[in-house]
């Protein structure tokens, strides 16, 4: 779970997506193939080569108003085609905390 904030070289070894946080409220978002953003990982554009990853990231970073902190994150493509987060960090970003929120009933 090395922080992607330390991501320097772009070299992917498997299917990946570009993710960021939405500027106005910080919500986790994914770059789509339609040059937009979605809060659903299922809508994310999948890249499989480093060149494609670089291109998708460049496009995402260019949207400085809409998104903040874009980076490339690994995903798994399940047999049924479902996109799943590729590591625990991304799982937590996508699915939420692994603990219950401490909110009173």
């Amino acid at each position: 779970m090395t922080s992607p904030l330390e991501q320097k070289k772009i070299r992917i070894t498997g299917p990946s997506v570009v993710t960021a946080n939405r500027t106005r409220d910080g919500v986790v978002i994914y770059r789509t193939a339609q040059q937009g953003w979605s809060a659903q990982l299922a809508d994310a554009a999948i890249v499989r080569t480093s060149d494609d990853a670089r291109a998708l990231l460049a496009e995402a970073v260019a949207d400085d108003v809409g998104a903040i902190g874009a980076y490339i994150a690994p995903v798994e493509i399940k047999d049924n085609g479902v996109i799943a987060p590729g590591n625990l960090r991304e799982h937590i970003r996508s699915e939420g905390l692994t603990i219950e929120l401490p909110v009173s009933a």
């Binding site: 779970m1 090395t2 922080s3 904030l5 902190g69 625990l88 960090r89 937590i92 905390l97 692994t98 603990i99």
Partner: peptide, 17 residues
């Protein structure tokens, strides 16, 4: 920890719990 923090490598809160 990793439940919230962008710098974290691992979770802290579930260990504490």
């Amino acid at each position: 920890g990793l439940d919230y923090c962008s710098l974290a490598n691992a979770r802290s809160i579930p260990i504490a719990q």
